[in-house]
């Protein structure tokens, strides 16, 4: 369960999040949407404790997270840009993260799924962007945690891997997990998301199901509905 209460974050003089409150107390896929710079990544990083908010409280499973770290055992995080230490090999990185977390991992299965076997002995610095993203996905999905946070998971993936990704997310959802996703690909959202959290200029502009959002804006597709909101707000 994720509970955010009046979260405020400024970077210098730029207000990124303003009194954001959000409560996610059920399982399912929650898509965090919004234009560039609307505070999606900042919100996610605040939940992870990577960004430290000026004001506001975040609770994970009922506990306040500030200055805590053990709660991250129950979160799997996929960063927006797959950046790894260049001189490590893929297998070494996977072993290292498994070792650091001390949790059981099903990396073998995922390596097979994304066909990463030929790359296991390659250094991460020599991999293409898409392959790095696949490694990123393996690292995220290999642990069994109740909360998954995926920041733009589709970046650089080929169509086959994209299908695998959707299947993985579906499987996790069926297991009763809470999954937060940010993305700009609306087709992807329509297929997998149960609910939408729409951020605009640091505020939550809309919270509800995809169908509700379409109904509110009077459009047939999600893409058009979002575009309508953005043009009305003159963003």
């Amino acid at each position: 369960m994720i509970e955010i209460n009046k979260l405020n974050k400024k970077f210098g003089r730029v207000k990124v999040l303003e009194d954001v409150s959000l409560k996610i107390d059920k399982s399912g896929v929650f898509a965090i949407l919004g234009p560039n710079g609307s505070g999606k990544t900042t919100l996610i990083k605040s939940i992870l404790g990577m960004v430290i908010p000026q004001r506001g409280v975040i609770k994970i499973n009922g506990d306040i997270i500030s200055n805590q770290w053990l709660y991250r055992k129950s979160i799997n995080y996929l960063p927006q840009i797959a950046r790894f230490p260049d001189n490590l090999k893929v297998a070494e990185l996977i072993r290292m993260i498994t070792n650091l977390r001390g949790q059981k991992s099903n990396d073998k299965e995922l390596i097979r799924l994304f066909k990463l076997e030929p790359f296991l002995d390659k250094k991460l610095g020599n991999l293409s962007g898409g392959t790095k993203q696949k490694v990123n996905l393996v690292l995220t999905f290999m642990f069994d945690s109740p909360i998954l946070i995926l920041d733009e998971p589709t970046t650089g993936l080929d169509p086959v891997s994209l299908i695998h990704l959707k299947e993985l997310i579906k499987k996790e959802k069926e297991e009763g997990k809470t999954i937060l996703i940010t993305t700009h690909i609306m087709d992807f959202v329509e297929v997998i998301a149960d609910e939408i959290v729409f951020l605009l200029e640091g505020n939550i502009y809309f919270e509800g199901t995809v169908d509700n959002l379409k109904k509110n804006s009077g459009k047939n597709s999600l893409e058009e509905a979002i575009a309508t909101i953005l043009t009305e707000e003159n963003v």
């Binding site: 992870l48 404790g49 770290w69 709660y71 991250r72 055992k73 979160i75 960063p79 950046r83 230490p85």
Partner: peptide, 16 residues
């Protein structure tokens, strides 16, 4: 040069 590594670690259950 290890900033990426650091960011990766920060998302893990390890104290800062």
């Amino acid at each position: 040069s290890s900033r990426e590594f650091t960011e990766l670690l920060l998302a893990q259950p390890i104290k800062r």
